[in-house]
């Protein structure tokens, strides 16, 4: 992976933006509606990274954000949950973008679902109880409005970036 200064700066900006979105998300609790649910605002940045950077560079943005946030505000277990959800979402979204099977909004919904499933898998391992998947149907339904929100925002931001910022 060859990264020039411009790319490096861009990756740094994306990581810090994702951190801010993650922080904003903490102030808007939605897990009262569905246990364990969240808006996934930081996924806006992951999605945009996947569209404007290579897959490896986008992975760097994702892992960078998760590691920094977990070390600053989280714990070992929050690192584990964020990584499992984040990486699964990254792989699913990356594949759908590569094969151009859906627009950014569909990709965003799939990312939200992949994130949920990744976290439920780790949660099931941690508590050694598969019953946690009892929450899956509700989380699936909830992933649609949040995925639409994140996808639409990313779409608007992506258009702005492509018109205003030189990437390579």
């Amino acid at each position: 992976m060859k990264i020039n200064t411009r790319k490096l700066a861009l990756i740094g900006i994306l990581i810090s933006q994702a951190m801010i979105l993650g922080f904003i998300e903490r102030t808007i609790p939605v897990n009262f509606i569905v246990p364990g649910a969240k808006l996934g605002l930081a996924n806006i940045i992951t999605l945009i990274s996947l569209y404007i950077l290579t897959f490896k560079e986008a992975s760097l943005v994702l892992v960078g954000r998760i590691v920094i946030i977990s070390f600053l505000f989280g714990s070992m277990s929050s690192l584990l949950y964020s990584l499992s959800g984040g990486i699964l979402a990254l792989i699913i979204m990356g594949s759908f973008i590569k094969f151009d099977k859906a627009s950014i909004i569909g990709v965003s919904i799939l990312g939200a679902i992949a994130h949920n499933i990744g976290q439920l898998l780790i949660a099931a391992l941690v508590i050694s109880n598969i019953n946690i998947f009892y929450y899956l149907p509700l989380l699936l339904v909830f992933a649609i409005p949040t995925g639409l929100l994140v996808g639409t925002t990313s779409k608007l931001m992506l258009a702005f970036i492509r018109n205003n910022i030189k990437i390579d």
Binding site: S103, G106, I109, P137, L138, V141, I144
Partner: peptide
């Protein structure tokens, strides 16, 4: 939005409904 986006939404809702009623 592409046609596939709507297909994704419908499939997700169907999956949720199937798991929920299956469990019930």
């Amino acid at each position: 939005m592409k046609k596939n986006d709507f297909v994704i939404i419908i499939l997700v809702l169907l999956a949720a409904l199937t798991i929920y009623t299956g469990n019930k």
